[in-house]
Design a protein around this nucleic acid. Structure first.
Lengths: 312, 312
DNA sequence: GTGAAAGCGCTAACAG
DNA sequence: CTGTTAGCGCTTTCAC
């Protein structure tokens, strides 16, 4: 009988099984931007870890837009995924994740937390890292310190960093940046905190604008590796020497950062671990072992290289 | 009635609909390695383009392993996806994609073609690009030209580039490389054609081995941006000057390549277009408009920068 | 022990 | 034109 089935090319129908059992062995990944040095590796970790436990991953991109996130969650819920990992584009406004005061599904937040949803969060300690980055600048005699950060939009409007919707990584990094300045007795200059989109052209334009001002910072903290790249491009175009003229620290540490000249001092985060931990926390909820697993905050470490130089 | 449904939190059940209609509005993406500068952007293009037509994307990673690919296809078929986009790890051995002489599902090959499956392929003209890269080296007086290429494995064994299973991009790039040498009247030295895994440590070790030989090439074609990075790392460790001591051209052109010093001459491929074209070709098959859409080969262009220098 | 039957939620077909 | 019903393929239950 089994042989006959084989030769006839029988495939057990996972749809029918899902319908009957109510379980799809599928998780949904709602991610702000899958391309980019951080999230592509996190996605790989998630897909691999999930696959190892027999789960497939539906990946939906939101382009950092909260409405797209709500739509994506709706689609995944309709598809009856067993759980959700979401990289949210906002810190509030998650009606789409709540049903009364209950979660709509097993849920883990990756990288960014929300204030209005009582769910497990897997993230890194970016606030400390930003504080430490400023301290490194200060140790090198730099006192004119700025920051270039990406930011999300809601319905096309760029969010202020003070907005209650501003994503947590942004507030944490900006917050740590401000704390670092305060700890060194330095004034926070709002005009040296610049926000931009992630794409290279836009970010480069923002970097050039900041660096061509009459009074410009001599050290800048980049909120991710894309903005670090934009600053590099701006320095090249403005004929500024990285390290000497502009010291630079960026978040995330892709392979190419160590091969730049000067080699870039970056905040290294355990990307792969973050992704696989998120899946493990989610599976705990799906299997019912934990209703709400503890959140996990992994350390972010600055790896010192050559893009921060003593001020002449 | 509608209002009542709303307040009760009714969600139409996509599983039941799929069971009834036989259509899941889901496509499967079987990809060799989602992380990495090429495939992460291709994946983004696919997810976005599919979403724009109301399709979700299940992403499965095969880690360049053919058996994992067969398993992945099996899972997706069980899940009754409406179509498949596959970045295959082999040029033959695709029983898992065939049912007699019919495709098991609407199918598009992305980036790499197969010899044994009559399906639409969306790829770039890598052979010409490799030939052209060699010509550029030769124009700069370089005659000792090598190549560092990644290669896939089957059941853990590395494939020879002459194997009928070797993936098409590898054979095309190596083939173009050999043709370029022949066109310049240069001898092909097999010992200067080195294969490696993609990960930075392994690739760097391979690069160092090649470059520390008594007789070493003075120009190397890198089969992707990861191997280009490995060569950069090797040059740094061996104290070789990129361009002068080792001229370098690599496939794919991530943003960081233009910001290296010297800026890297790279083969730019229209990644995003490749991904969205693959989805469009697939949708044509799913909707039944074309049984078998024409394959699409997009041009790959070398963008000349500073990593190729005239031999002193 | 084995085998039949009910039902998951939807849609297509059909009857009123 | 509106309302009812049958059935997709599986699993769970229940009867034999």
């Amino acid at each position: 009988v089994v042989q006959a089935a084989e030769t006839l090319g029988y495939r057990s129908n996972a749809i029918a099984r899902a319908m009957r059992s109510g379980r799809t062995s599928t998780i949904g990944l709602v991610i702000a931007d899958i391309s980019g040095s951080f999230f592509d590796r996190a996605t790989l970790a998630i897909i691999r870890t999930a696959a190892a436990s027999g789960y497939q991953t539906l990946v939906l991109n939101t382009d950092e837009d909260l409405e797209a996130e709500a739509d994506a969650v709706g689609v995944l819920l309709n598809k009856r995924v067993d759980g959700l990992i979401v990289v949210t584009s906002s810190r509030t406004g998650h009606d789409h994740l709540l049903d009364g005061d209950q979660l709509v599904a097993p849920l883990v937040f990756l990288d960014r937390r929300a204030d209005d949803v009582p769910a497990c969060v897997v993230s890194t300690d970016d606030r400390s890292a930003a504080r430490e980055a400023v301290a490194i600048f200060v140790e090198h005699g730099r006192r004119k310190i700025g920051m270039l950060s990406t930011s999300s939009t809601i319905a096309g409007r760029r969010l202020s960093y003070t907005s209650p919707q501003a994503i947590s990584t942004m507030s944490d990094r900006v917050g740590g940046f401000q704390e670092g300045l305060a700890a060194a007795g330095l004034e926070f200059r709002e005009d040296w905190l610049v926000f931009t989109d992630t794409d290279h052209e836009t970010a480069t334009a923002a970097a050039i604008e900041l660096l061509s001002r009459r009074e410009r910072p001599t050290a800048i903290l980049a909120s991710n590796s894309e903005t670090a790249l934009a600053l590099l491009q701006a320095c090249q175009q403005l004929d500024l020497k990285v390290a000497e003229d502009l010291s630079l620290i960026g978040f995330d540490d892709p392979t190419w950062a160590r091969l730049m000249r000067p080699a870039l001092t970056m905040v290294s985060r355990p990307v792969y671990e973050l992704g696989s931990a998120a899946v493990e926390k989610l599976l705990l909820q799906i299997t019912g072992e934990h209703d709400r697993p503890d959140s996990l905050t992994l350390p972010a470490q600055i790896v010192p290289r050559d893009s921060v130089a003593r001020l002449a």
